[in-house]
Write a protein that binds this DNA or RNA. Structure first.
Length: 553
RNA sequence: UGGGCCGUCGCCAAGCGGUUAAGGCACCGGGUUUUGAUCCCGGCAUUCGGAGGUUCGAAUCCUCCCGGCCCAGCCA
């Protein structure tokens, strides 16, 4: 330990919990929860919250529940709930208990009656528009509803009839009686319950009234004895209401809400509304499109749970409005795949190379290491023949300055093989290079050439043994760092965000690749066998990320 | 004179009255290298949004100012 170990940065939430634990608050227990609404797929921003909540519980030997915030049946579905469970599990976390806000609908109703009995809640029969008008503005106080002083008996009666389904959507709502002049708009008699005659994914048609988030969340937390309720900054203004509800009810506990900044990632959009739009308007190919910032999309792209967790570790937890650069995310997956991914050779845009001083039936098999720094990764056989393919990028008839690949009359090292020299260029009628005729130096296998330096090294694949493959290249979906601010989503989409190459040639060992297996295609980048489309008969690889490139390709 | 919150290196982020202001990403050198990758070594804030003040001593406490974010759903 001569070197300073990378110290994991502390954060303000940890500091708060450290103090609470030291003070013996909550009996020294730490209980958190991850509370998604099942109305869409989870994205990288949720991963931040998942890592925080589950990670915090683990750190303090506590527990973390997965709780579906299913209070708005019109927008929620079982498909989403299932996907969310899969995503959390795939990320590597286990919830202590699986709960639903709807598990507490009966208790929530009883607590609401209690608020009415205390004179702290009332049924308002104003329309939504009237309520909006009476709410006031950011700078002007609101005015009290004419229904605000109904008797407790009348409120109880009306509320029970709302529950019984006697009224239609919008006829009445239950409101907390707090302060219409509060500077905090959330405290201007917020709605607690609304009538919604729709089928709920779990309670079916049992209820015709559904509780609002602010009322449901704090009570659910309290029922589950959550100690630290971690949520994003936009709920800071809601905390007084969170505390108001719990201060006025005899709940099992009174959790502490702590807010942190949500994730903002450059060239990405993390608004559920806009992600749904991308899917519904077929701007992308579904929720798991490899360009999507959804967990399932990133999984298909080739990101790993480890890399996503590392990312959440690297970005930290604060209350700052921070924008994270893409490079941070890319660095996480590169680090892991550099350590773990076996190396292979793949040619994306093939040019045939004929090594003319080799007999037509020449055949050699090289045994190559799967990893240059890790012997335990084993080896594989790579055939070498008279005709091979190299990448079009690795040949230049008129090379740019400092180019160190193949040029007319020049030499280059074939990776793990011989040094070859380009003797002749063959073009088609359109002037496109279709073949290179080269000679090789037989005395350069495993050794440097005599009397000269050959700096460039390029990858290659045997023309006779290479397998054809489809390789999909991905770039950021958007052409601007903050697409949410773009004129329109359509304009912000980068048409080059997905490039499908269907004529690639890869080394034969790749025939054994299985879905979701990662590789480094040497000199190109990290790739993953597509989890849905790849098979041994139809090789399909997605580019996770390029190799770091200090040159400028 | 609406309420709430935030400002430490290009991007993140530790720091909590006494440290040479951590660390990561990025960047810039130099070395190794049959991946222009990896790896290694070195560099990278006399300064903490600004100005005052308190103090022997301030990024850390106080005051004012400047800049940015959130809130007017019967969404979460």
């Amino acid at each position: 330990m001569s070197k300073s170990e990378p110290v994991k940065a502390s954060n303000f939430i940890r500091n708060i919990i450290d103090e609470d634990v030291a003070a013996g608050k909550n009996g020294g227990q730490v209980v958190t929860r991850f509370p998604p609404e099942p109305n869409g797929y989870l994205h990288i921003g949720h991963a931040k919250s998942i890592c925080l909540n589950f990670g915090t519980a683990t750190r303090y030997n506590g527990r973390c529940n997965l709780r579906f915030d299913d209070t708005n049946p019109a927008k929620e579905s079982e498909e989403y709930a299932l996907a969310i469970k899969d995503d959390v599990t795939w990320l590597g976390f286990e919830w202590n208990e699986l709960r639903h806000a709807s598990d507490y609908f009966d208790e929530l109703y009883e607590y609401a009656c209690e608020l009415i009995r205390q004179g702290k809640a009332y049924v308002d029969s104003s329309s939504a528009e009237e309520m909006r008008e009476m709410r006031g503005t950011l700078t002007e106080p609101g005015i009290e509803s004419p229904y605000r002083n109904r008797s407790i008996e009348q409120n109880l009666d009306l509320f029970s009839r709302m529950k019984a389904g006697e009224f239609n959507d919008g006829d009445h709502v239950l409101r907390a009686k707090i302060d219409m002049a509060s500077g905090n708009i959330n405290m201007r008699d917020p709605t607690l319950y609304r009538i919604r005659k729709v089928n709920h994914i779990r309670t079916g048609d049992k209820w015709s009234i559904y509780p609002m988030y602010d009322y449901t969340h704090c009570v659910s937390d309290a029922i589950e004895n959550i100690t630290h309720s971690l949520c994003t900054l936009e709920f800071e203004d809601h905390r007084p209401l969170y505390d108001w509800v719990l201060d006025n009810l005899k709940t099992p506990s009174h959790p502490q809400q702590i807010e942190f900044a949500r994730l903002s990632l450059e060239y990405t959009m993390l608004s559920k509304r806009l992600l749904i739009k991308l899917v519904e308007e077929n701007i992308v190919n579904g929720w798991d499109d490899p360009r999507m910032p959804t967990i399932i999309g990133m999984r298909r792209r080739g990101y790993t749970p480890e890399a996503l967790r590392e990312f959440c570790e690297r970005i930290g937890i604060t209350k700052n409005d921070a924008w994270i650069e893409m490079m941070v995310l890319e660095g996480c997956i590169r680090d892991q795949l550099n350590r773990e991914a076996p190396r292979r050779m793949a040619v994306l845009d093939p040019i045939k190379v004929v090594i003319t001083d080799l007999p037509a039936d020449h055949e050699q098999r090289f045994t190559l290491a799967n990893h240059p720094q890790d012997d335990t990764a084993g080896t594989r056989e790579v055939p070498f023949t008279r005709e091979i393919y190299i990448d079009r990028d690795d040949f230049a008839e008129v090379p740019p300055p400092k180019y160190q690949r193949l040029i007319p009359g020049g030499e280059v090292r074939l990776r793990s093989s011989y040094v070859i020299k380009c003797e002749e260029i063959i073009k088609d009628d359109a002037g496109k290079v279709v073949e290179l005729r080269c000679t090789h130096d037989p005395d350069t296998l495993g050794k440097k050439p005599e009397g000269r330096k050959v700096k460039g090294v390029i990858h290659w694949v045997s023309a006779t043994y290479g397998e054809s493959a489809e390789i999909r290249l991905y770039n950021p979906l958007f052409n601007t760092p903050d697409p949410a601010k773009a004129e329109s989503i359509e304009d912000a989409i980068d048409p080059e965000s997905e490039i499908i190459l269907s004529n690639c040639i890869v080394e034969p060992a790749l025939k054994d690749a299985v879905a979701e297996q990662h590789f480094q295609f040497e000199r190109i980048g990290y790739f993953v066998a597509d989890r849905h489309d790849h098979s041994s008969d139809n090789l399909v690889f997605n580019r996770v990320v390029t190799l770091r490139d200090t040159w400028a390709k």
